[in-house]
Design a protein around this nucleic acid. Structure first.
Length: 697
DNA sequence: CCTACGCTTGTTTTT
DNA sequence: CAAGCGTAGG
């Protein structure tokens, strides 16, 4: 095979080149399409920082240049942000190589089918809605909506009675989700992951049945349904064929984090594996709590009887060797075999700092000081990031950053979409789009004074008896004193369901909601700006349906009301959970609370597989760093459980991951005591300030 | 039938 | 700290 383009591939190493060009024919320049489905399956094992994004971007660009139409490429990445990044990079590659050609001959890089598995599933379902028995306008339930809806069933089935000790809604939805995503029975899932629920198998089955029925009558799909419906679409002859034929090439990023259901969908999309490229790294699998299955990537070659080409990328372009030594030793301490040793192309640098600090306040201060010092040395805030295991671990730090006026953005953790007041507003919008959305309807009705579960239930029956027509809803009679608010709500619903303008509808809703906001929340003044922000976000959307589903599937950042919203071009620091930091990199990285209880998480103790996952989590965190890595270990570690009794702190044990061999590749630092002394008051002389002040008058 | 209040409980990570 | 539950009072 002749190289596709020596110019654009020059910066790739030989293995990356191979991965980017494997089994792609040469375009003859006239854009003749290659015969569909000639590419054999490809597995790219890409260690952290080995140029995975670049490689895929080049592969996409090569596909486009070889004549494959962009809309015949399915690109599934872990987050939509990753998808956007990938397309952007591919476009750059293409335009760099095509600059010599006239603009008209340049292939454009548009990959409309790029996104997460869930968002692609969603698009397909909207596209084929009428063919698969779904009404357009169906709602998407996020995780907590799903849990709430399941809880409705749980209560109706009388499973919630206290003496029964039936699992709580979150446990139930978890079990349900795993059954779906792992294509396993309740028995399998409970024995393996929820042994204390084994005695409830029959009840759980009843519950899931009722839940499924309720979702269907509410015209609602949860996240798992998106995949499940897609999977079942692929079981239907002509439909499966049509969907499979849409795509000539399928690229899946972060394949180690896909689950069994997703793998099954992929298999259905391309039974022989032709045109399939999967990319991933088993050492970076950190989503088993979401039913991710490392076996997917480990067994990928076996799936297609030896036809799979495996390309292993080991040369790391991100970090210097001292950081990679840390990562390598961390993984070699594991009992599980990760046959990957990262090799730096950048030479070496400072060893990672393992910093012992007194408590979380010292930790916050240490991080802030280092960040400021780095900034003085010319390193922007944007080149630095603070990573942590749980989103609340950054609480003390956020206070400190705000105090010192350091702007930051926090990824992960509570999104503002999950806060009550946003949900209230979104539910009214949702209800107006999908009158059968029971969860949304109940929530809205119960906002009204004097309307609780019972009245709402009667009103709901009335609405359903009237074909879910909002016009009829104003005829529902309730106590006279409640009537005005009720009619107002009906008016809004009628208006919004009749007028297609998202912006004006949302504005109506927000205005309507304002009094309820003030009645419901003492801190309404803080919450009000969120509603304005929501309206800002809505500007980017054509209609309510797109707005609602996009926000459910690709939530925007958390509200950054702490240090003020950093503008796009302003410099700001990134705070992120490690899970949300995947695929990113910074010059300087700070990992908080490298202490047992946090690394590994207290919930993981006792289960070897979970401990291993925590190890990989630390690995992912450490390999985000390009130049500087700080691992901070407070001696006193805040454990929220002990809140009441005396000390809030617990003396944390050294993280079990920090073995002697691992410590050898670190530089130890101590921080705290001296700082403490600097803060102490050296009281030499007593001054009577009040007296002085009084003298002023 | 609805609300308000006070008590207990139980807290990861995300599409 | 917020959600869930029980109780007393409209």
């Amino acid at each position: 095979m002749t190289s596709v383009s020596s110019f654009s591939l020059r910066r790739l190493n030989s293995r990356q080149q191979l991965a980017a060009a494997y089994d792609i024919g040469e375009s003859d320049g006239a854009g003749s399409a290659i015969e569909a489905g000639t590419s054999r399956p490809l597995l790219v094992l890409a260690g952290a920082g080995t140029g995975k994004t670049t490689t895929i971007a080049h592969r996409v660009a090569n596909l486009v240049r070889s004549g494959v139409s962009g809309n015949r490429i399915l690109l599934m990445t872990f987050s939509r942000r990753a998808a956007r990044e990938m397309i952007h990079r591919a476009a750059q590659v293409v335009s760099a190589t095509a600059a010599t050609r006239p603009a008209s001959a340049r292939p454009s890089v548009k990959i409309p089918w790029a996104g997460t598995y869930h968002s692609i599933a969603h698009r397909l379902l909207r596209l084929y809605a009428r063919h698969v028995g779904l009404q357009p306008g169906f709602s998407i339930l996020d995780r907590s909506d799903a849990a709430d809806m399941l809880d409705v069933c749980r209560q109706e089935l009388r499973l919630s009675d206290k003496h029964k000790r039936f699992p709580r809604k979150d446990a139930c939805i978890d079990i349900y989700s795993r059954c779906v995503n792992r294509q396993a029975t309740i028995k399998d899932v409970t024995t393996r992951d929820f042994p204390w629920c084994q005695n409830w198998q029959d009840e759980l089955r009843e519950l899931f049945k009722a839940y499924t029925a309720l979702k269907q009558s509410s015209l609602s799909l949860d996240y798992d349904d998106l995949l499940l419906y897609w999977y079942y679409m692929m079981q239907e002859g002509w439909l499966a064929e049509e969907v499979a034929n849409k795509f000539e090439h399928i690229l899946v990023d972060e394949y180690q984090d896909t689950n069994i259901l997703q793998a099954a969908i992929l298999k259905k999309l391309s039974p022989e594996g032709s045109g399939v490229t999967v990319v991933g790294d088993d050492a970076q699998s950190i989503y088993s709590f979401r039913a991710a299955e490392v076996a997917n990537i480990r067994n990928f070659p076996g799936q297609y009887s030896g036809k799979v080409k495996v390309i292993d990328l080991q040369e790391n372009y991100r970090s210097h060797q001292a950081i990679l030594d840390f990562a390598n030793v961390l993984m070699s301490d594991s009992k599980q075999p990760y046959c990957r040793t990262l090799q730096a192309q950048k030479g070496t640098g400072d060893k990672p700092f393992y910093v012992t600090v007194e408590d979380d306040f010292c930790q916050a201060r240490y991080i802030t000081e280092q960040i400021l010092k780095n900034r003085e040395d010319g390193l922007q805030l944007m080149q630095q990031a603070v990573l942590f295991r749980n989103s609340h671990h950054s609480d003390a730090l956020e206070v400190e950053l705000a105090r010192r006026n350091i702007p930051f953005v926090k990824y992960g953790g509570l999104k503002f979409l999950e806060s009550q007041h946003i949900k209230d507003v979104m539910c009214l919008l949702r209800w107006s789009v999908n009158p059968k959305d029971r969860l949304a309807g109940f929530r809205c009705m119960q906002l009204l004074p004097g309307v609780g579960p019972a009245l709402a239930a009667r009103a709901w029956q009335f609405l359903m008896a009237n074909d879910a027509r909002f016009v009829a809803l104003s005829d529902f009679k309730l106590p006279k004193s409640r009537q005005p608010e009720w009619l107002q709500l009906c008016g809004i619903l009628r208006h919004c369901s009749g007028v297609p303008s998202l912006l004006s509808n949302l504005n109506e809703i927000v205005q309507w909601y304002r009094p309820y906001l003030e009645r419901r929340f003492p801190d309404f003044a803080v919450r009000w700006p969120d509603l304005e922000q929501l309206q800002q976000i809505a500007h980017a959307y054509r209609d309510a349906e797109h707005f609602l589903s996009d926000l459910a599937l690709d939530p925007p950042l958390a509200s950054g009301d702490h240090a003020g919203d950093p503008l796009k071009d302003e410099d700001y620091l990134v705070l992120s959970t490690i899970h949300s930091a995947k695929g990113q990199e910074w010059n300087s990285v700070y990992i908080m609370n490298v202490v047992d209880g946090s690394f590994p998480s207290e919930f993981a103790t006792g289960d070897d597989n979970l401990i291993e996952e925590e190890r990989r989590l630390l690995y992912v965190a450490a390999t985000r760093a390009k130049d500087q890595l700080h691992l901070i270990s407070p001696l006193r570690f805040y454990l929220p459980q002990q809140q009441r009794h005396g000390s809030k702190h617990v003396y944390g044990a050294q993280s079990r991951f920090m073995t002697a061999t691992l410590l050898e590749v670190c530089e130890r630092r101590f921080y705290g005591e001296s700082q403490h002394r600097a803060d102490q008051v050296h009281a030499v002389e007593q001054i009577d300030l009040p007296a002085r002040i009084s003298e002023l008058w």
